[in-house]
């Protein structure tokens, strides 16, 4: 026991001596604790602009790639695939309530960013304003279903595929707050 203590002390002395020598030329800058360390490189894993785009329009084999393609490159990489997916979901697609044909609609969707108005109503769609933001209570799924399945007259009382444009879940399970942070408390 005693011998072990001597050995440990010797090792400790040796380590401190070595450490002192080794550190003599790399501790010349500012030192001391400066708070959390945020250094390093952070590599992209997921991204999202509009709701449900990757989920609905991207094939399983491409989902990781979609998440790691920067938005300015997404249109060129994915518009054609999105158009094929749209026509697979709704083979009868002609135009939609925004009068967009399949190429125009999927061209708008493929660049997955959310446009947000700085001088007007912010909503995914409220009957008047289209894609000017996304508020918590916006029924974004109904909007997307309507644009995908509803045809050109979906908003004037004559939708194609009337059973597919409303999931009949029209609101959240908890009321939102009128003040920051706006989202409801957890369950």
């Amino acid at each position: 026991m005693k011998f072990n203590n001597i050995k440990l002390t010797a090792i400790a002395l040796l380590v401190s001596f070595t450490a002192f020598n080794c550190s003599s030329d790399d501790d010349n800058g500012p030192t001391g604790p400066t708070g959390p360390n945020f250094t390093g490189t952070f590599a992209q894993q997921d991204q999202m602009g509009r709701p449900a785009i990757n989920t609905v329009f991207v094939d399983m084999a491409d989902k990781n790639m979609f998440n790691t393609t920067i938005p300015s490159n997404q249109g060129a990489a994915f518009q054609t695939k999105f158009e094929a997916k749209l026509l697979a979901l709704n083979p009868g697609y002609t135009t939609n309530a925004l009068t967009w044909d399949a190429a125009t609609f999927t061209g708008a969707l493929a660049t997955d960013v959310l446009t947000v108005s700085l001088n007007g109503t912010t909503t995914f769609f409220d009957g008047t304003n289209v894609l000017t933001g996304r508020a918590l209570a916006d029924d974004v799924i109904n909007v997307e279903l309507t644009l995908i399945f509803g045809g050109p007259d979906a908003l004037t009382g004559n939708p194609t595929n009337p059973g597919l444009i409303n999931d009949n879940v029209d609101g959240n399970d908890k009321p939102f707050l009128s003040t920051f942070p706006y989202l409801a408390s957890p369950w």
Binding site: G40, T41, F42, A43, Q44, Q45, D46, Q47, M48, G49, P71, D112, V113, L114, T115, V116, S117, L118, N119, G120, T132
Partner: peptide, 16 residues
């Protein structure tokens, strides 16, 4: 921004 609108998206990035 100073214009009528901005585009936004969110990314998650993992430390390498």
């Amino acid at each position: 921004g100073n214009g009528d609108s901005v585009n936004i998206w969110v990314e998650t990035k993992r430390k390498q």
